[in-house]
C-alpha cells in the first residue's frame, strides 16, 4: 500500500512536471506542423515570456491573467519578427536539407535571444511576487495548487487549440497548408500569413509555458534553454505534428522520468527518459500519437 501511494505520488509529480513542458512542446509542434522544421528558438521565447510576465506582475502590478496574456503576446510578436528576419531568408532557399538548416539557424537564433536577454537583465534569478502555497493533501497524495493550475491551464489551452483547428476557418486553413501548400494556395490562402500565425501562436504558447515555469521556479536568461531537450523529446514522442500528441508526450516524459527514480539513481533521470523514448520509438516508429487529431493528417 505504501509502495502504491509512493508510486502514485511519483506519477502526480511527473504529471505536474509534464504540464510545465506541455505548452512549449505544443508550440514547437504547431510550428513544425505548418513550417516543417523544428524551431529551437521556442526555448528562448519561453524565457522572453517569463520576463514579460515578471515585468508585468512584479513591476507593473498586473493581475495573473493579464500577465499571462502579455507572456503570450510578447514572445508571439517577437517570434514572428525573428522568424522573418532570421529564418525566412533561409527558408526561401530551396535545398536538400533546408529543414535541418532551419533547425540549426534556429539554435543560433535561440543563442542570440538568450544573450540579448542577458544583456538587458543580467544573469540574476528573478522572483515573481506571488504568494507561495503549501501543497494540498488529497488521498495521501500531495500536490501544489499552483502546479495544479499549471496542469489545468496546459490542458485547457491544448483543448482550445484543438477546437481552433477543427472549428474555425483559419484553423482549417492551417491544416490545409500543413497538408498541401499548393492546394492551399489554390484555395486562395496566403501561406505566409498562415506561417506567421502559426509562429505567433506557437511562440505565444511557449511564452505562457515559460512564465508558468518561472512562476514555479524563477526567471533567468537560461530558464527556457535548460529544458529544450526535454521539450524537443516530448514533441518527437508525440509525433511532431499532433497537438494532443505533444501534450501527452510531455506528460509521458514527465512521468517516465519521475517513476524511473524507483529503479534508477536520480542523477540518471533524463537518461531514463531518453531510453524510454528510444524503446517507444523502436516499438512504434512513427511516434506515440502520430495520426491522432493533429494539425497534419
Amino acid at each position: 500500500m505504501i509502495v502504491f501511494t509512493e508510486l502514485a505520488q511519483y506519477v502526480v509529480n511527473g504529471l505536474v512536471l509534464g504540464a510545465l513542458i506541455a505548452l512549449p512542446a505544443l508550440g514547437l509542434t504547431l510550428i513544425f506542423s505548418v513550417q516543417g522544421f523544428v524551431n529551437f528558438s521556442v526555448a528562448a521565447q519561453m524565457t522572453v515570456g517569463a520576463y514579460a510576465a515578471w515585468l508585468a506582475g512584479s513591476h507593473l502590478g498586473w493581475s495573473p491573467i493579464l500577465m499571462l496574456l502579455l507572456a503570450f503576446a510578447v514572445p508571439g510578436a517577437l517570434g514572428v519578427v525573428t522568424d522573418r528576419l532570421a529564418l525566412a531568408p533561409v527558408r526561401r532557399q530551396s535545398g536538400a536539407h533546408t529543414a535541418l538548416m532551419l533547425a540549426v539557424v534556429s539554435i543560433a537564433l535561440n543563442l542570440a535571444i538568450e544573450n540579448a536577454l542577458r544583456f538587458i537583465f543580467g544573469s540574476n534569478l528573478n522572483n515573481f511576487d506571488l504568494p507561495m502555497e503549501r501543497n494540498l493533501q488529497v488521498w495521501g497524495l500531495s500536490v501544489g495548487p499552483q502546479q495544479l493550475r499549471n496542469l489545468v491551464t496546459a490542458l485547457v489551452i491544448a483543448v482550445a487549440l484543438a477546437a481552433f483547428f477543427s472549428l474555425t476557418r483559419w484553423g482549417k486553413a492551417m491544416r490545409a497548408v500543413a497538408d498541401n501548400t499548393d492546394l492551399a494556395r489554390l484555395k486562395g490562402i496566403e501561406p505566409r500569413s498562415l506561417s506567421n500565425l502559426a509562429t505567433f501562436i506557437g511562440m505565444g504558447l511557449a511564452g505562457i509555458g515559460g512564465s508558468l515555469l518561472a512562476i514555479d521556479t524563477s526567471v533567468d536568461p537560461s530558464t527556457g534553454s535548460r529544458l529544450i531537450l526535454v521539450i524537443f523529446a516530448a514533441s518527437v514522442l508525440g509525433g511532431l505534428t499532433s497537438l494532443y500528441g505533444a501534450v501527452l508526450g510531455a506528460l509521458v516524459i514527465g512521468v517516465a522520468g519521475e517513476v524511473a527514480m524507483i529503479a534508477m539513481p536520480p542523477v540518471y533521470q533524463s537518461l531514463t527518459a531518453f531510453l524510454a523514448i528510444l524503446v517507444i520509438l523502436l516499438v512504434k516508429p512513427t511516434g506515440l500519437f502520430a495520426g491522432a487529431t493533429g494539425v497534419r493528417k
Binding site: 505520488q9 511519483y10 509529480n13 511527473g14 505536474v16 512536471l17 510545465l20 513542458i21 515555469l213 514555479d216 521556479t217 535548460r226 529544458l227 519521475e258 527514480m261 536520480p266 542523477v267 540518471y268 533521470q269 533524463s270
Partner: peptide, 9 residues
C-alpha cells in the same frame, strides 16, 4: 540531476 524544473520526487 541539475537543470530540472522540479525536485518534488
Amino acid at each position: 540531476e541539475d537543470k530540472r524544473a522540479s525536485y518534488r520526487t
